[in-house]
Design a protein around this nucleic acid. Structure first.
Length: 417
RNA sequence: GCGGUCGUAGCUCAGUUGGUUAGAGCGCCGGUUUGUGGUACCGGAGGUCGCGGGUUCAAACCCCGUCGUCCGCCCCA
């Protein structure tokens, strides 16, 4: 087999417009999270494997097949983080952060999952993450969802995304509902798809979002969670729904929206779009009151979400191209020296400027044009002799002579205007 | 893990009854214009047709494998 220089499957080399979209998503996230008082947190890219294995349950496919786990030189089993939540929960426990509770935390960065790549699905991918740790109040659920909704609005994609909302109730609710579902589906097991029969044993809630046409009927007649909600759980969900209405966040009650892991409680939500094929969830989250306790920490209620940066980036409008404001064009050795001085003065005055390095005047002007600069500053022997600079507006093609001493001030004014 | 699709210049793609030196547009470089970009015209560079093997006198084209892409499924923390 011939050796070929290529990137690892499911990874990306980001540049140009793609990266501009990516950065735009992250910058918007950072701006909006400040409005909501979420503070940045940064946790390691790898952790002891037990951090993720324990939080997810040892036997799941996720742990056994979909994590990048390896042994380091000291013989420790480590895993590249497949999610933020477990790492943040671990940090909360390790550092005794309960003293800061409730904490409103925001993170973003690369995550790793060994999966079959598709559009919007990579092996190294990136997420935004928001968590409120140490708050049992439904107000926290409302807050994280409102944050996500505003993020989507400010990204300009709110009209292409729908908020689906559900409750999984408290532990008691969940157990009772689960039993009822198992009873319902077991009674009709012969008409379930083969895959859903598997789920019946491993993860019965997941039958509810089965894509099999044949399962739909059974799902439609399955018991809903509402009949099993304890009064506390029902009240909690009511408060969340009323709060979202008060906050002006539209949602659709989606009874089939479930989570596979036991530590999820109460609120579950996803912002979904129909514009990305099968990878339609752009932000997903919920309340995970059971997680930190199950990892060996103090029983700590928490709620949060994660959003796929690549998927969000695919939905946002093309950002304006990054470009310098001024291109300095010099001809002749004497002018070259002066141009360097001018170039630095412009930059120090806060004007984005660059200078073409090669070619004759024509080439340098071409370069200036394709750089997207608003102005070209032309300095040759004529200008130098008069201590002037030719300022050419590259959009209109008009140009004028400006005294060298006035150029920086004139341009910083023009560029800002 | 399963099924399907596709893989030709930097990019988007054309190119079958298998047949001599593999094409276009855009981009890039140079020129028409040796102090002026964006338009126009002229010219040029750039490809072991993903990779490996097979069939054949002959393979970009057919077959097998492999790597990668995309679309579903599974999974979805």
């Amino acid at each position: 087999m011939a050796e070929k220089v290529q990137r690892v499957r499911g990874t990306q080399d980001l540049y140009g417009e793609e990266l501009a979209r990516f950065d735009h998503v992250v910058e918007t996230f950072n701006r909006v999270r400040k409005l909501y008082g979420f503070r940045r947190v940064d946790v390691p890219v790898f952790e002891f494997t037990s951090v993720f294995a324990r939080s997810l349950g040892e036997t799941t496919d996720v742990v056994s097949k979909e994590m990048y786990s390896f042994e380091d030189r000291g013989g420790e089993s480590l895993t590249l983080r497949p999610e933020f939540t477990a790492g943040i929960a671990r940090a909360y426990i390790s550092n005794g952060w309960q003293q800061h509770a409730p904490m409103k935390l925001a993170a973003h960065g690369p995550l790793f999952r060994y999966e079959r790549p598709q559009k919007g699905r990579f092996r190294q991918f990136h997420q935004l993450d928001a968590e409120v740790v140490g708050a049992a109040e439904p107000a926290a659920d409302i807050e994280v969802i409102a944050f996500a909704a505003q993020l989507l609005r400010e990204l300009g994609i709110a009209d292409r995304v729908t908020l689906q909302l559900n409750t999984l109730g408290d532990a008691e609710t969940r157990a009772a509902w689960r039993d009822a579902l198992v009873a319902h589906f077991s009674a009709h097991a012969d008409s379930l798809s083969a895959e859903s029969r598997e789920r019946l044993a491993k993860n019965p809630l997941r039958i509810l979002d089965s894509k099999s046409e044949g399962d739909r009927e059974l799902v439609a007649t399955a018991p809903g969670i509402d009949a099993f909600l304890t009064s506390d759980a029902g009240q909690f969900f009511d408060t969340v729904q009323r709060g979202l209405e008060a906050a002006g966040v539209a949602f659709v009650r989606t009874p089939a929206l479930v989570r596979g892991f036991d530590y999820y409680r109460h609120t579950a939500f996803e912002f979904v779009t129909e514009h990305l094929g099968a990878q339609g969830t752009v932000i997903g989250g919920g309340r995970y009151d059971g997680l930190i306790g199950s990892m060996g920490g103090p029983e700590t209620p928490a709620v949060g979400w994660a959003g796929g940066i690549e998927r969000l980036a695919m939905l946002v409008a093309e950002p304006e191209r990054e470009h310098v404001e001024v291109a300095v064009v010099a001809t002749g050795d004497a002018a070259q020296g002066y141009a360097l001085t001018l170039l630095q003065r412009l930059r120090q005055a806060g004007v984005a400027a660059e200078m073409s390095w090669r070619g004759n005047l024509k080439k340098k002007m071409e370069r200036a044009g394709s750089s997207g600069a608003d102005f070209a500053l032309i300095i040759g022997e004529d200008e130098l002799a008069l201590s002037e600079v030719t300022v050419r507006n590259l959009a209109t093609g008009t140009q004028e002579r400006v005294r060298m001493v006035d150029v920086v001030a004139a341009l910083s004014g023009d560029v800002e205007a």
